[in-house]
Amino acid sequence: MTANIGIVTVSDRASSGTYEDKGGPAIAEVLGEILVSPWQPVTRLVADDEQKIADTLIELADSKACSLIFTTGGTGPALRDVTPEATQAVCNKMLPGFGELMRERSLAQVPTAILSRQTAGIRGRSLIVNLPGRPSSIRLCMLAVFPAIPFAIDLIGGPRLETDAAKCQAFRPPG
């Protein structure tokens, strides 16, 4: 079974065409490196607008059956950064450990990581994970949290995700 994986870039500049989207491609690149099970990206590029972000997440989860959705951008403290609020608005369960781990790993690199507001949550059979906007930070954060993602997808009834253990060791409890 091929897994649909949503990749949402949240950026006023990229959505208007004045800035090249580097976040979405960075997510796809990491997924291409670590996943060995079949998957296909379902990409979206939206402005920093809470309702547009929420509508996009709902579409990917409910209509496009994305078992996993990554967002990039909109997680800082700026007035236009509203990705976590949109994520919380559409999720029925929040998973704060994702954001905690991403901030912990990022803080080892840069002190401003404390300003990051990444989070994750469940909407039906979809796991939504907010990532930062910089490609190097995306990679760092994805590799930090991805070991837990395949089991989370199992628990919500999604397709089985298998990783290349040499690049990312997914954890599933024995039995």
Rank of each mutant, 00 (worst) to 15 (best):
R80D: 10
V110A: 12
S116I: 00
E100S: 07
S116V: 07
T112M: 13
K93L: 14
G121W: 00
R103T: 04
I122P: 01
Q109S: 06
A78D: 04
S116E: 01
A108M: 11
G133V: 09
A108K: 10
G133T: 12
M102R: 06
S106C: 04
M94N: 04
V129S: 02
R134F: 15
R134D: 02
I128C: 10
G124K: 07
S137C: 04
P111C: 11
F98E: 05
L131W: 04
N92D: 15
L140S: 08
I122K: 03
S126T: 04
D81I: 08
R125S: 07
A78E: 06
R117V: 10
F98W: 03
P111K: 15
M94Y: 12
G99P: 03
V82R: 12
A78T: 11
P111A: 11
Q109Y: 15
D81K: 05
L107Y: 14
A120H: 00
L131Y: 10
P135N: 01
Q118N: 03
P135H: 01
A78W: 09
P84T: 06
L95G: 07
T119W: 03
S136N: 13
E85A: 15
I138Y: 12
S136T: 12
T83H: 02
S106D: 05
Q109G: 15
I138N: 03
R117P: 08
Q88R: 15
E100Y: 01
N92S: 14
Q88T: 12
L107F: 12
I128N: 07
L115M: 14
V82P: 05
G124V: 03
K93Q: 14
E100P: 12
R123N: 01
G124A: 09
V129I: 10
V90K: 07
S137L: 09
T87C: 12
G133R: 04
S136L: 13
D81H: 00
T112I: 08
T119L: 01
L107T: 12
S136G: 11
S126I: 00
Q118W: 04
N130E: 06
R125G: 08
P84H: 09
L140N: 10
A86Q: 08
E104W: 12
N130H: 02
E85I: 13
N130F: 02
L101W: 04
Q118I: 03
A108P: 10
